[in-house]
């Protein structure tokens, strides 16, 4: 019997890498305790994946938020800084970022693991719907923030404001929960032993707790916009149970940018035609409904490595460059079929 060739470690432990990066990019723990956000210099730097910079734990800037912040400002109409960052990351990693480094992608994958009898990744209109993320990028991330400006010449971050469910989940919900009376309860429970919030403030003055009733207490406007964004978040959460990473496939502008770079990115899915036995196991395993045997570097591939894991001959591999792998000698291939 021929032994199945080993899959690279980073592909085998993708879930752990995702978790590590989610924790790393949201490692400002005191923010979750105090209902504050990190204000250090690191926030000049963009995270590679979609991660709301208004999340209490975020230590880096969200690239989509940063892009809108620059183009909507009075001083600039295009962003060389964020554009250059996305070019560099996209050309090097492509949608590896989506599969390995994006916290919101990880959350959707967790939701998809919930047992449900009716999982549906392929449906009529699926292909067409995937172009929506390019519309999001062009209209809500670039055109409207740049050109729909107020009297002072400042635009609005329209994608974040009207669509982004990551902002609702990572920013709005924690901040609302940590404010007002709910905040006091949270502080006590986090610090432990039923310590009153006021004691917490005395114990950790550097955290500047926004206690209810104090002048620092934030007043959040829970209005139509909040409920609209909650609706989008709930829809994404529910759909994620039946459809694999729907936000990434249909709405994510960052996925659109990295997707355009996928065909030329240095990190790529590689196919050794000499090793392929045309068993189609890769296409059956692909949750984005692609055909890795014939097209390896499509914009939709998030480099999850499912096809690599099921490939019996090691014909498919993920890595930097076009290096081919010859893991199984030709005479043994039929035995693996």
């Amino acid at each position: 019997m021929v032994k199945k060739p080993p899959v690279k470690l980073h592909v085998r432990f993708r879930g752990l890498i995702q978790l590590f990066f989610a924790v790393l990019t949201n490692s400002f723990i005191t923010g979750f305790i105090a209902g504050k956000i990190y204000k250090g210099d690191l926030k000049r730097v963009c995270a590679p994946g979609l991660n709301c910079y208004s999340c209490p734990g975020a230590v880096l800037a969200c690239p989509i938020g940063a892009l809108q912040a620059v183009v909507s400002s009075r001083a600039f109409n295009i962003s060389l800084y964020v554009g250059g960052f996305l070019l560099l990351v996209g050309a090097t990693l492509g949608r590896f970022v989506c599969g390995f480094l994006c916290p919101f992608g990880m959350i959707q994958e967790w939701l998809y693991k919930i047992p449900f009898p009716w999982k549906k990744n392929h449906f009529k209109g699926d292909r067409q719907l995937r172009y929506l993320k390019y519309v999001m990028l062009a209209v809500l991330v670039i055109l409207l923030p740049t050109f729909m400006v107020n009297a002072t010449g400042t635009g609005s971050p329209t994608f974040c404001k009207y669509v982004c469910p990551a902002g609702t989940l990572e920013g709005a919900i924690p901040l609302v929960l940590l404010s007002g009376s709910a905040q006091a309860k949270t502080i006590s429970s986090v610090i432990g032993g039923g310590i009153p919030a006021a004691s917490a403030e005395m114990a950790f003055p550097q955290l500047q707790f926004d206690l209810p009733g104090s002048s620092l207490a934030p007043q959040y406007d829970i209005g139509f916009l909040f409920y609209w964004k909650m609706f989008i978040l709930i829809a994404v959460v529910l759909i994620s149970v039946v459809n694999w990473r729907p936000f990434c496939k249909y709405l994510c502008p960052l996925g659109a940018i990295y997707g355009m770079m996928n065909p030329i990115s240095l990190y790529r899915l590689r196919m050794d035609d000499d090793l392929c036995i045309h068993c189609h196991k890769c296409a059956k395993a692909c949750k984005t409904c692609l055909d890795p045997e014939h097209r390896q570097n499509e914009a939709e591939c998030v480099r999850c490595g499912d096809c690599v894991k099921v490939c019996p001959t090691g014909a498919l591999s993920l890595g930097f460059g076009d290096k081919k792998t010859n893991k199984v000698p030709a005479p043994n291939r039929q035995a693996l079929k």
């Binding site: 208004s54 938020g65 912040a69 974040c160 404001k161 709005a172 609302v176 916009l225 964004k229």
Partner: peptide, 13 residues
């Protein structure tokens, strides 16, 4: 932008 809570970005302002 990133060091201030962007209320309009997250739908609570």
């Amino acid at each position: 932008k990133a060091i201030l809570i962007c209320l309009e970005c997250i739908g609570i302002g």
